[in-house]
Design a binder for these strands. Structure first.
Length: 833
RNA sequence: GCCCCCGUAGCCCAACUGGCAGAGGCAGCCGACUUAAAAUCGGCCCAGUGCGGGUUCGAACCCCGCCGGGGGCACCA
C-alpha cells in the first residue's frame, strides 16, 4: 500500500484528464465555426436538437457521440465545420410542469437548458457554442410568426372548420401525424373527433414534390425512412367519375382506382359525417332523417380505436336517394356509412361489391346485390367462386364481363378505354389522391408561438405586420393554464384586445399557438444567422452553409419532423428565400439504446443512468462504447457491451503516448518500416470507413494499431523509434473522434496542442503497397495451395506458378484441366475436366 | 392484408459488395510478472454463415420458397 505511489503521470486517470481539459476547451472553443476570412471548404453537420427535459440520457449520449464523430472527422480533414446545437423548447412538458408544480414554464425551461448544456460540455460535444438557439425565446419565434405570415400571404396557411383529432386528456387538437394507432402520441389517451375551426398549412399542395423528390435522396437517406415517407404520403392514381343524383341539380364526383368495374357498381356510399351526407338526407322523410341523425351521433362518439378495428361489422343508413350510373343508366341506392371517409377523395364512393372487399362486406350486411364484371381466375385457371357466396371479393386481374362494349377486354386496357371515354363525354377525368392531409398547426395551449393574426369584425383575418412582430406570449402569471379546450391565452384580456392593423378599430388577437413542429421545421436555417434581427436568416450565410450536409437523429422523426422540414424548405424555395429544395442532403439514423433486450422505461425498471455511467467509466469510455458497439443504425443493448473493457483499451492507448521517448518533430521516415505500413494503412482505411459511417470498424482498426504499437515498444524497435511516435500520434488523431479527452491528453504528452485541429496524418501511398501478396490457389473451389507473389504479377505468370504448385499437382492427380480462372494477384481457381 | 429491413462463434460484431469465413472486442481457459491479489503482458478455445432449393469455376453476399425477429402503412375506394 505504501510502496510505489501511483501518480497522474504514469496512470490513466480519466477524472483528472476530464478536469484538465474541460476548462481549456471552454477557453479555446476549438469548434467555433468561422463565417469570414476562412477559405477552408465548409461542412454543415447537424444533430437533431433536444427537448429540454431534465438531464441527458443514454439516447442523447449515443446520438451526440455519433454526430461528434462526423463533425470531428471533417474538422480533422481540414474543413470549416458548422456543428450547432439548440433547444426545441416549446411544448407540453414545460406547460404541464407549470400546471402540476406551479412553476413558470420559462424558468423551468431555462433551468433545464442550463443543465443540459453543462452535461453536453462535460460530454465534450463538439458544438459551436456561439450559435445556440432556443425556440421558446422571442428572438426565435418571432421568425416563426414571420414565416407564418409569408405562408398566409401565399395561401399556404388557412383556417377551416372541420373534424379534427382531439385528445381529451391534453385538451388539445392533434395533427394526424400525432395520432398513433388511435392514441395520443404523447399521453396514450384514445383520440376522439371534434368539429373545430383550426389553422392548417397546405402541405398537400406539395404532396407530389415531397414524394417525387425522395428519389433524389436515394442512397443518402436510409431506405427505411424513404419508404416510410412514401407510405405516409400514400399517392394513389385513379379517376374521378361523375354520377347524377335524382332530385339534385349538381352531379357528384366519386374517386375510384378501378373505373374498369363501373358496370359492377350496385350502390353508392357517402361518408356519414360528410356535408354531402347531411345534404342528401334533407329531402328524405322524417324516419330516415331520424335514423341518419342517430347514426351520425354514434359515429362521432366512436373513438378512433374502435374505427381502426378491421374486423368491425359494417354499419350504415339507406338515405332513400338514388344515383344514376353514367355507363348504363342504372339507379343505384345511396347509403351513408362510416367506412367511407369524409376527407378522402370526395367523401363518396361507387360500391362494387364483387371486386372490393369493403363494399362486399357492406353489401352482405345490407343484403345488396353483387355483380361480377371481371372474370378472375385462381392459380389453376378456374373461375373464382362467386363473391356473393364466398364472401371474398375478386380483387385480382381478369377480363371484363357483363360490361357492354368492354366485354372481353383485359383489366388494364379496360381502365384506359373507359377513362378516355368518360373524359371525352365530360363525365370523368384522371385523378390522384393522397393519404397525406393538410397539416393542422393550431393548438389550444399556452406554451407555444402565438399565431400572428388579428380578427377584426370589419376586415376579417388580418396578418400582423412584420414591424409589430414578435407577438410575445403574455406572462403566464394569473392565467389558468389547465387544459380546457380553448386556449389559455383567451383569458389574457389585455393581450387579446388590440386594434386592427388595417382599420385601427378594436379587434382581437388569435389565441391559438403553433404546433412545435413548426419551430423545428426551419431551425437548421436559423443556426446560420443566429443573431440576425431583420430576418430569419441571411442569404449570404445560407449560400455558404446550407443545405445541411449531414443530419443525425433518431428514426422516431422519420415522418413528422422530416416531412415538415422538407415541406418548409420547398415553400421557402418557392418564395425565393433559399436556392435548394431539400433541407438535409444526407441522413444518419442512430439506433436506440436498450437494456436487457428492451427499451429502457420506468415501468420495466431497466433504466441505465448516463450520469452514473459517466462517473464510473468516464466520458470517453461511454462514448467509445456506444460507437464501438455496432453499426450506428443498430440498436445497442447496454447489457451486451462493456464500458469497463473500453476504458481499459483507452488506458492502453494512453500509455503509448506516455512511453514514446523520441522528440516531437522527429522524422518518421527513419523509423521502423513495418509499423509505419500499419499506421498508414490504418489512417487510409479509417478515412474510408468513417465516411461510410462504419465507425465501429474504425475503432477496431484503431485497436489493432494500438496493439501493433505496443508490440513495437515492448518487443520491437523500441520506444525511441520515430515510427512509434508516428503511430502514437496517429492513435491520438483517430481517438480524437471518439474519446476526445484521452486523445487530447495523449497529444499533449506527445508535445502538441489541440488535437481536434491536429490534422489527419498524411497517408504515404508508397507504404500501402505490399511487397508480396498471398495468392490463394483453388482446385474446383477448394483451397489447395498458397503462393507469395508480387502484387504486379501478370496473369500468365500467375497461372503458370499456380499450375506448378505442389498442392495443386497433388489435387489434380494428372487430371485434364478444363479452365483456369485467374484473378491476379489474389486468386487462381483451377477447374479439372 | 400490403410494403420494407435483418438472421455469421456462448455474446456484440468484421469480411475490400461474388474470391482463403474472422479484423476488433466481451465472456471462458492457460501462462508470464507478483509473497499474494489487482493492474499489465502473452497465448489458446470457439461458427461454415436460420432452413431448403437454384445460378456460378466459385455464394454469407445474387435468385426462388420457407422459418424466426424487427419495423412501417392499414375501411384511403
Amino acid at each position: 500500500m505504501t510502496d510505489t505511489p501511483v501518480t497522474d503521470e504514469n496512470r490513466y486517470d480519466f477524472r483528472a484528464i476530464e478536469d484538465r481539459w474541460q476548462p481549456v476547451w471552454r477557453e479555446t472553443q476549438p469548434f467555433r465555426s468561422s463565417n469570414e476570412g476562412d477559405d477552408r471548404p465548409t461542412k454543415y453537420v447537424l444533430d437533431m436538437f433536444p427537448y429540454p427535459s431534465g438531464d441527458l440520457h443514454m439516447g442523447h449520449a449515443e446520438a451526440y457521440a455519433l454526430g461528434d464523430v462526423i463533425a470531428r472527422y471533417w474538422v480533422q480533414r481540414g474543413y470549416n465545420v458548422l456543428h450547432p446545437i439548440g433547444w426545441d423548447s416549446f411544448g407540453l412538458p414545460a406547460e404541464n410542469a407549470a400546471i402540476n408544480r406551479g412553476l413558470d414554464p420559462r424558468g423551468w425551461t431555462e433551468d433545464n437548458i442550463a443543465q443540459q448544456r453543462a452535461s453536453m460540455e462535460r460530454y465534450a460535444c463538439s458544438f459551436d457554442w456561439d450559435r445556440v438557439l432556443a425556440t421558446h425565446r422571442p428572438e426565435y419565434y418571432q421568425w416563426n410568426q414571420w414565416l407564418f405570415t409569408r405562408m398566409h400571404e401565399k395561401g399556404l396557411a388557412y383556417r377551416k372548420h372541420s373534424n379534427v383529432n382531439w385528445c381529451p386528456k391534453d385538451q388539445t387538437v392533434l395533427a394526424n401525424e400525432q395520432v398513433v394507432a388511435g392514441l395520443c402520441e404523447r399521453c396514450d389517451t384514445p383520440v376522439t373527433k371534434k368539429k373545430l375551426n383550426q389553422w392548417y398549412f397546405k402541405i398537400t399542395d406539395y404532396a407530389d414534390r415531397l414524394l417525387d423528390d425522395l428519389a433524389t435522396l436515394e442512397g443518402k437517406w436510409p431506405s427505411k425512412v424513404i419508404a416510410m415517407q412514401k407510405n405516409w404520403i400514400g399517392r394513389s392514381e385513379g379517376a374521378d367519375v361523375q354520377f347524377r343524383i335524382e332530385g339534385r341539380d349538381e352531379p357528384i364526383d366519386i374517386y375510384t382506382t378501378r373505373p374498369d368495374t363501373l358496370y359492377g357498381a350496385t350502390f353508392m356510399v357517402v361518408a356519414a359525417d360528410s356535408d354531402l351526407g347531411a345534404e342528401l338526407v334533407e329531402g328524405a322523410d322524417a324516419a330516415v332523417k331520424e335514423e341518419f341523425a342517430a347514426y351520425v351521433e354514434s359515429v362521432r362518439a366512436a373513438s378512433d380505436i374502435d374505427r381502426l378495428a378491421t374486423d368491425r361489422p359494417k354499419t350504415g343508413v339507406f338515405l332513400n336517394r338514388y344515383a344514376i350510373n353514367p355507363v348504363n343508366g342504372e339507379r343505384l341506392p345511396i347509403w351513408a356509412s362510416d367506412y367511407v371517409l369524409a376527407d378522402y377523395g370526395h367523401g363518396a364512393v361507387m360500391a362494387v361489391p364483387a371486386h372490393d372487399q369493403r363494399d362486399l362486406d357492406f353489401a352482405r350486411a345490407m343484403d345488396l346485390p353483387v355483380r361480377l364484371v371481371l372474370d378472375v381466375r385462381d392459380e389453376d385457371g378456374n373461375p373464382v367462386e362467386d363473391p356473393a357466396t364466398s364472401g371474398i371479393a375478386a380483387t385480382g386481374d381478369g377480363t371484363l364481363i357483363n360490361s357492354g362494349d368492354l366485354n372481353g377486354k383485359p383489366k388494364d386496357q379496360a381502365i384506359a378505354e373507359i377513362s378516355a371515354d368518360l373524359e371525352a363525354k365530360g363525365l370523368g377525368a384522371a385523378s390522384r389522391n393522397y393519404r397525406l392531409r393538410d397539416w393542422l398547426i393550431s393548438r389550444q395551449r399556452y406554451w407555444g408561438t402565438p399565431i400572428p393574426i388579428v380578427h377584426c369584425d370589419d376586415c376579417g383575418e388580418v396578418r400582423v405586420p412584420d414591424d409589430q412582430l414578435p407577438i410575445e406570449l403574455p406572462p403566464a402569471e394569473g392565467l389558468d393554464l389547465k387544459p380546457k379546450g380553448t386556449s389559455p391565452l383567451g383569458a389574457a384580456t389585455d393581450w387579446v384586445n388590440t386594434t386592427c392593423p388595417d382599420c385601427g378599430k378594436p379587434a382581437k388577437r388569435d389565441t391559438d399557438t403553433m404546433d412545435t413542429f413548426v419551430d423545428s421545421s426551419w431551425y437548421y436555417m436559423r443556426y446560420l444567422s443566429p443573431n440576425k434581427t431583420d430576418g430569419p436568416f441571411d442569404a449570404e450565410d445560407a449560400k455558404k452553409w446550407a443545405p445541411v450536409d449531414q443530419y443525425v437523429g433518431g428514426v422516431t422523426h422519420a415522418i413528422l419532423h422530416l416531412l415538415y422540414s422538407r415541406f418548409f424548405t420547398k415553400a421557402l424555395n418557392d418564395m425565393g428565400f433559399v436556392d435548394f429544395d431539400e433541407p438535409f442532403s444526407a441522413l444518419l439514423n442512430q439506433g436506440m439504446v436498450q437494456m436487457d433486450g428492451s427499451a429502457m422505461s420506468k415501468s420495466r425498471g431497466n433504466i441505465v443512468r448516463l450520469s452514473e455511467q459517466l462517473d464510473e467509466f468516464g466520458v470517453d469510455a461511454v462514448r467509445l462504447t456506444l460507437v464501438f458497439a455496432g453499426p450506428p443504425e443498430d440498436d445497442i443493448d447496454w447489457a451486451d457491451v462493456s464500458a469497463g473493457a473500453t476504458a481499459k483499451f483507452l488506458a492502453r492507448a494512453w500509455r503509448l503516448a506516455r512511453d514514446v521517448s523520441s522528440e516531437p518533430g522527429v522524422d518518421p521516415t527513419t523509423g521502423d518500416a513495418a509499423l509505419r505500413a500499419i499506421t498508414h494503412k490504418t489512417m487510409h482505411e479509417a478515412a474510408e470507413l468513417t465516411e461510410s459511417f462504419r465507425f465501429n470498424v474504425v475503432v477496431a482498426r484503431t485497436m489493432e494499431l494500438v496493439n501493433a504499437t505496443r508490440k513495437a515498444i515492448d518487443s520491437g524497435p523500441g520506444a525511441a523509434d520515430p515510427a512509434v511516435r508516428e503511430a502514437a500520434e496517429a492513435v491520438a488523431v483517430l481517438l480524437s473522434m471518439f474519446a476526445p479527452y484521452c486523445a487530447e491528453d495523449m497529444w499533449s504528452m506527445l508535445g502538441h496542442e489541440n488535437v481536434a485541429r491536429g490534422g489527419w496524418i498524411d497517408v504515404d501511398e508508397s507504404l500501402l503497397v505490399e511487397d508480396t501478396v498471398t495468392c490463394v490457389v483453388q482446385v474446383k473451389g477448394k483451397v489447395r495451395d498458397r503462393l507469395e507473389v508480387p502484387p504486379s504479377i501478370s496473369e500468365d505468370d500467375l497461372r503458370e506458378q499456380a499450375l506448378a504448385a505442389p498442392g495443386v499437382v497433388r489435387a489434380l492427380e494428372g487430371a485434364d484441366i478444363r479452365t483456369v480462372i485467374v484473378r491476379a494477384p489474389k486468386l487462381v481457381n483451377i477447374v479439372p475436366a
